[in-house]
Each structure stands twice: as C-alpha cells, then as structure tokens.
Amino acid sequence: GTLHLNGVTVKVPSLEKAIKAAKKFAKKYNLEVQVHGNTVHVH
C-alpha cells in the first residue's frame, strides 16, 4: 500500500499496516484518514 501523510508519500508493505499507521498519526495530529483503493491519505 501507499501512505500519504500531509504530502509525504510512504510505501508500506501491507495496506493494514498503512491504515494502522495512518490512524495513529491522524489521532495524534487530529487529522482525517481516507482510504482510496490501496492508498491511504492523511490530511
């Protein structure tokens, strides 16, 4: 999967790991997580 954090793109081995990391990051910075196919966006 691919993880987008505020314009930074990170390749992640699995989508589940990407979503987990995204949710952790989003919670910390009070951001929103959106999943588009195998790409996770945090903004």
Results as ranks from 00 to 15, higher is better:
H43L: 12
F25I: 11
V33A: 00
G7V: 07
T9F: 13
H36F: 09
K24C: 15
N30D: 09
A26Q: 03
K17G: 09
Y29M: 05
H41N: 10
E16C: 11
H4Q: 07
K20I: 12
K11V: 11
G1V: 14
A22Y: 03
P13Y: 06
A22H: 00
V40S: 01
E32N: 09
G7C: 15
V10E: 03
A18P: 00
I19F: 04
L15V: 08
V40H: 02
V42S: 02
N6A: 10
T2E: 10
F25W: 13
I19T: 01
A22C: 13
V40R: 01
K20P: 00
E32H: 12
A26Y: 03
Q34L: 12
T39D: 07
V8I: 14
G37Y: 05
Q34E: 14
G37M: 04
L31K: 03
I19K: 01
A26C: 02
K28S: 02
L5W: 15
Q34V: 15
V42D: 00
A18I: 09
N38Q: 06
L31V: 07
G37D: 05
L31D: 01
V40N: 01
T39M: 11
I19H: 01
G1A: 14
I19D: 00
K20R: 11
N38Y: 06
K24H: 09
V12N: 04
E32I: 14
T39A: 09
K17N: 10
I19C: 02
Q34G: 05
F25T: 02
N30S: 06
S14F: 09
L3Y: 00
K28H: 08
A18R: 02
K17P: 01
V42P: 01
G7H: 08
H41M: 14
G1L: 12
E32T: 13
L15D: 00
A22T: 03
I19L: 11
V10R: 07
Y29V: 06
H41K: 09
V42W: 04
K24T: 05
K24A: 11
F25S: 02
P13D: 12
H4F: 06
H43I: 14
E32C: 15
T39G: 04
E32P: 02
V8C: 15
N30G: 15
V33I: 13
K11E: 08
K24I: 10
E16M: 05
N38T: 12
V12E: 01
H43G: 10
H36S: 11
A21I: 15
S14N: 12
S14Q: 05
V35Y: 04
K20A: 14
N30W: 11
G7Q: 05
N38E: 07
K20M: 10
K27F: 02
V8D: 03
L15F: 06
K28M: 09
H43D: 03
H4A: 04
G7E: 05
G37K: 02
F25M: 09
H41L: 14
N6Q: 08
L5T: 05
L15E: 00
F25L: 14
S14G: 03
V33E: 00
L3N: 02
G1M: 08
K17A: 14
G1Y: 15
Q34Y: 14
G1S: 06
Y29N: 07
V10P: 01
K28R: 08
A21T: 06
A18K: 01
Q34R: 10
Q34K: 11
K11A: 08
N38H: 08
K17Y: 11
A26D: 01
V12G: 03
T9V: 14
H43C: 13
H36Q: 09
T2Y: 15
G7W: 10
G7N: 09
V12D: 02
N6E: 06
H43S: 09
H43N: 07
Q34T: 15
K23T: 09
S14V: 04
V35R: 02
N38C: 08
H43V: 12
G37W: 05
Q34F: 14
E16I: 12
S14T: 09
V10Y: 13
L5N: 02
Q34M: 13
I19E: 01
K27P: 13
I19M: 06
G7A: 05
V33M: 05
V12P: 04
I19A: 02
E32A: 09
K28N: 05
K23V: 11
G37Q: 05
N38P: 04
L5H: 05
T9C: 11
E32W: 08
K23S: 04
V8Y: 13
G7I: 10
T9W: 13
A26W: 09
N30V: 07
T2F: 15
L3M: 08
H41Q: 13
A21N: 04
G1T: 08
K24G: 05
A18F: 08
V42H: 01
